[in-house]
C-alpha cells in the first residue's frame, strides 16, 4: 500500500515510516500542509495526518480532501484524548484516529484496516427505533445522545449494516475486524457484539445461531 505521512516532526515521521516500510508499505512523508497538498497529486491508499502542523491544522486538509471528493482513508494522530478533538476529527472526514503515544502494532493494524476498507466502504445512514447510525461519519446516536464506539466495533457494525437484513457469517466478521479467525478472535467477536448491544440496545444486532449475526 502507498501511505502518506503528514507530520512536522521529522524524527517521528521517520520512525513511523520505517515501521510501515518494514511491513512492506511504500511510504512518503510531508512536513506541512503545503507539501502534503503537493504530494496528494499522486494517489495514496492511506494518509496518516498529524493535527498540529506549522501552517495550519490537519483538520483543514481533511475537510479540503473530502470537499474535493477524495475518498482516501485518513488516520489522525492526535495528542489529545479529549472527546471534542476526536469528534471534530471524525466530523471533518477522518476515518480513524490514534492517540499519542500509540503502540506501533495498533498503528499498523489501523493502517491495514483502513486500506482494506477502501474497497468496500459502505455509505449508509439508518434509523431504527431510538437508534440513529451514520456509517460514513461513524456517528451513532441513541435517544438523541451520542454513543461512542471503538474503531473495531465500527468495522463490525459497518460490515453488518452493509448487508442489512442478511446474515453475515462469523468468519467474514472475524476477517474484517481481526484479520484472522483464531479461537481467541472468535471469543473476542462475541464479547464485542455483546458490548455493541450494551451500547446500542439488545435489539441492535440479531444472533443467527450457527451462522452469524444480522442487523434488521
Amino acid at each position: 500500500m502507498r501511505v502518506l505521512i503528514v507530520d512536522d516532526d521529522p524524527e517521528l515521521a521517520e520512525l513511523v515510516s520505517r515501521s510501515l516500510a518494514r511491513e512492506g508499505h511504500a511510504v512518503a512523508t510531508a512536513a506541512d500542509l503545503e507539501s502534503a497538498r503537493a504530494a496528494l497529486v499522486e494517489a495514496f491508499d492511506v494518509v496518516i495526518l498529524d493535527l498540529g502542523l506549522p501552517d495550519g491544522s490537519g483538520l483543514e486538509l481533511c475537510r479540503e480532501l473530502r470537499a474535493a471528493g477524495a475518498s482516501v482513508p485518513i488516520l489522525l494522530l492526535t495528542a489529545q484524548s479529549a472527546v471534542g478533538e476526536r469528534v471534530a476529527g471524525l466530523n471533518a472526514g477522518a476515518d480513524d484516529y490514534v492517540v499519542k503515544p500509540f503502540a506501533l502494532a495498533e498503528l499498523r493494524a489501523r493502517v491495514r484496516a483502513l486500506g482494506r476498507r477502501r474497497e468496500s466502504a459502505p455509505s449508509v445512514t439508518y434509523r431504527t427505533g431510538d437508534l440513529e447510525i451514520d456509517l460514513s461519519a461513524r456517528r451513532a446516536r441513541r435517544l438523541g445522545l451520542e454513543v461512542e464506539l471503538t474503531p473495531r466495533e465500527w468495522v463490525v457494525l459497518e460490515c453488518l449494516a452493509g448487508s442489512r437484513g442478511r446474515v453475515v457469517s462469523r468468519d467474514r466478521l472475524l476477517e474484517e475486524g481481526w484479520g484472522e479467525s483464531s479461537e481467541a478472535a472468535s471469543a473476542s467477536l462475541e464479547v464485542l457484539v455483546g458490548r455493541i448491544r450494551r451500547k446500542l440496545g439488545r435489539d441492535a444486532i440479531r444472533t443467527v445461531r450457527g451462522q452469524g449475526y444480522a442487523i434488521d
Binding site: D9, E11, L12, V16, S19, A79, P101, F102, A103, L104
Partner: peptide, 20 residues
Amino acid sequence: AHELRTPLTKLRTELELRAE
C-alpha cells in the same frame, strides 16, 4: 501533557522498532 506526548511517542516507537 501535550509536549510530553510527542517525545514519548518517539521513544516508544523507537523501542518497539528495536525490539522487533
